[in-house]
Structures are given as C-alpha cells and as structure tokens.
Amino acid sequence: MPTFDIVSKIELPEVDNAVNGVLREIEVRYDFKGSKATLEWDKETLTILADDDMKLRQMQELVRGHFAKRKIEAGSLDFQKAEPAAGQSVRQKILLRQGIDRDAAKTITKAIKDAKLKVQVQIQGDELRVTGKKRDDLQDAIAVCKALPMEQPLQYVNFRD
C-alpha cells in the first residue's frame, strides 16, 4: 500500500549557518558598531539581545532574511514577547517549531477525513502517516493539506508505493 509521512522539521545545520550569517552581518554593519547586539542559539531557541527596540527590530529582520535565504520558512520561527534585560537593553526569545503538535495533527486529520478521500491517517508522535490504496488518493491528501491555513510549515516525506 502506498504511504507517506507528514512532518514539520528544520534542518539544524541550516539554522547554524543562518545564525552565523546574522552574526557576521552584525559585526560589519555600521549601525551596529559599538552596540552589544548578539544572537545566541541552543538547540531549541534563539535569543536576541539588543541595546534598544530599534536594534531589536533590525535584528528580527536580519534573522528572518537569513533564515529565508537558507530555505527555513518564517512559520517555523515563533517570536516571543520582548522583555527588558540589564540596563536599557532588550531580550527576545525565538522558539524553533519542530514536530506537529496534537491540535494541528487533529486539524489535518479532520480535513483529510472531511475531503472524503479513501485514505487512513495515523498520528505517530509528532508526525502523521497517510496510507491509501492509490497513489492519486495520496496526492489528493497532500493537496488538501497544502490548502489548510497552517502557520507551521509541513513537509511530505517518505513517499512509498
């Protein structure tokens, strides 16, 4: 039986490349000379530290731009509320969204079932497996998923006949 998986993943080496690109651009830009603007990355969150709100907004645009160049969709970045840090500086956390949470999985499953396609959808942890008798039904299921208004980017992988 043909199957495929619906996942939401981010390539971590590409995140590392994008972060390094942002840091290099901060070092050479004239408007960041003498500022304490930094970007830190651990495996799940990015942390922006800027001198003021204006520099914070500029760094957000740098992050979005460099991530877009690296083919990481903006929907996988979850910008948290900016908070004051030491002195006049501002800190903001950016969460990297990976995996499909329960609510999104139920939404996708319901949409595929409402389309009356001859496929079965199984929730397997943070991904979905779609199984059907015909390849065309699976392609229709992908089209239904792409039409959904999801913030989080989805990938369709592991397509097997």
Rank of each mutant, 00 (worst) to 15 (best):
D31A: 11
V121E: 06
A111C: 05
R29P: 02
G132Q: 10
L95C: 13
L77Q: 04
V19T: 05
D42P: 06
L12P: 12
K71E: 14
L62F: 13
I142D: 03
V15R: 03
I6D: 04
Q122S: 11
A68H: 15
M1S: 12
K118P: 07
I6T: 01
V19F: 05
Q120E: 14
A104S: 13
P84A: 14
Q122D: 07
K146S: 12
I72S: 05
I6Y: 04
Q98P: 08
E14F: 09
Y30Q: 12
I6L: 05
T45I: 08
R102G: 12
I123N: 02
G65F: 01
F67H: 10
R57L: 09
C145W: 02
L128V: 06
R129C: 13
L128S: 03
T45K: 11
D126P: 11
D31C: 10
M59L: 14
V22C: 01
L117R: 03
Q60V: 15
I108T: 01
K9G: 06
K110M: 08
E151Q: 06
Y156W: 08
G65V: 05
A104K: 08
S8D: 09
F79N: 00
K93D: 12
Q60M: 15
I26F: 03
F4D: 00
P149G: 05
P2A: 12
V90G: 00
Q124M: 06
D31K: 12
M150E: 05
A147Q: 15
Q98G: 13
I72R: 00
D161W: 07
D51I: 10
A50H: 08
R57D: 10
T3Q: 08
G132E: 02
D53C: 08
A147I: 13
S8C: 14
A147N: 15
D78Y: 02
A86T: 03
